[in-house]
Computed example of a mutant assay.
Amino acid sequence: MSDLPADVAAAEARRRADKDAPFLAAARGEKPSRRPVWMMRQAGRSLPEYREIRKNHGMLESCFNPELLAEITLQPVRRHDADAAILFSDIVVPLKAAGVDLDIVAGRGPVVEHPVRTQEAVDELPIVEPGQLDSIVEGIGGVLEGLRNDQVLIGFAGAPFTLASYLVEGGPSKNHEVTKALMYTHPDVWHSLMRRLTPTIVRFLQVQAEAGVDALQLFDSWAGYLSARDYREFVQPFSAQIFDAMRPYGIPMIHFGVGTGELLGEMALAGPDVVGVDWRVPMDSAAARISAALQEAKPTAEPASRAKALQGNLDPAALFAGPDITAENVARICAEADRAIERGQARGHIFNLGHGVLPNTDPDAITRAFEEVHKR
């Protein structure tokens, strides 16, 4: 440890999960003691205990309050026996912390008061400072105190394209037409915006890593709206910079986007250890796409470097179909992932949904799904 930079060494000292925790073993491509499972948005509106807290506290208030952040993050872990907690946060948290004028509006999502569409607006965009994230560091400490040693905490950040889209559109968009128009007509402004956002995302993740999280997920919500060509030109280089910056911390890094079946190979080439797969692509097919892309990019590399661990990919709606259907889908997905591992096209499998838990999901259905996964 003495040969590591001070911040990286301090981060390693704060991590308390066992090296052979199921999540970490699967991410490394080793045989875990049980198949690890967690679910995106597992901390949220599906839980009555979460809804009780949110009666009196706004979303962003909850993200920046250390006690609430820790409690909300731990609620699903306690209820469902999850192998990982995902830090309760939102994609726009680092922007809010930096001073961007935005809010999360009920029924709509993040809304930016002054959209960023010119070079002047890009130049005025603040970059987050570590001291602006102290409450999140404190909250992470509370989460770590509440986890078993075989459970991990996953840090979280939105990827540059998704953050840029919120800033350019001024809020959520169905078609991202303003974002794409800026990319196509003013690529210099677009690339400047991405270069401006990347340090904020890196700092947000570094603060989490140095506070003791065991893994990281870079979530590109809207990347699935892009063609592979546009992704390579306008997005991938910046996501790759983030993974490169975080690699010295030595913790597993996940990359996930919705509707990104055609981008899986490109996302894998950005540099994560684990690639998340949504429910539209079978796990073994996803692994084949990723392996082929890695092999094409690195034809002389060792076979082991042509595979990534996989995360996914139960359809969130399947949890509404009853326990038998859920069990059938869990068995199918695990079998697909296992086939990919046997073929050498995947290193390991972390079970998850193909997106996030839907708000009206019965919490007991989630618990049963976790139990089914742990049988496999």
Rank of each mutant, 00 (worst) to 15 (best):
E138R: 11
P110C: 12
D150P: 03
G142N: 01
A106D: 15
P126W: 08
P172W: 05
N175C: 03
S165L: 14
I127Y: 05
T179C: 14
R117P: 02
A164W: 03
T162M: 10
E124H: 14
V143C: 11
P126K: 01
L147K: 00
K180P: 08
E120K: 12
N149S: 14
V143L: 00
D150H: 06
L102P: 05
G146S: 07
R148F: 11
E113D: 13
G171C: 13
D123N: 13
S135E: 09
V116K: 00
L147E: 04
H114R: 11
V152P: 04
V122D: 06
G142Q: 00
I140G: 00
I154V: 14
G107M: 11
G170T: 09
L144V: 03
I127S: 14
L163A: 02
V143A: 06
E169H: 13
I136Y: 08
L125T: 08
A106P: 04
L125M: 09
I154S: 10
R108A: 08
E145S: 03
P126L: 10
V111R: 07
P160T: 06
I154F: 14
A159C: 05
G142L: 09
L133A: 05
F156A: 02
T179R: 11
G109T: 13
L167E: 08
L102R: 00
I154K: 04
A157E: 02
A164E: 03
S165I: 04
P172I: 12
S165H: 02
G170W: 12
S165R: 03
H176S: 09
L144S: 00
E138W: 09
V143P: 07
E169C: 11
G171H: 07
V111K: 05
P115V: 10
V168E: 08
D123M: 12
E124K: 15
D150V: 01
V178H: 12
F156K: 05
I104P: 09
G142Y: 00
D123S: 12
I136Q: 13
N175M: 04
A157L: 07
G146Y: 12
Q151Y: 05
G107Q: 04
K174T: 15
D134H: 07
I136H: 08
K180W: 13
E113G: 10
G109L: 12
V152H: 01
V178R: 14
Q151C: 14
A157F: 12
V122E: 09
A159V: 04
R148P: 03
E124P: 02
P172A: 15
V143Y: 05
I136A: 13
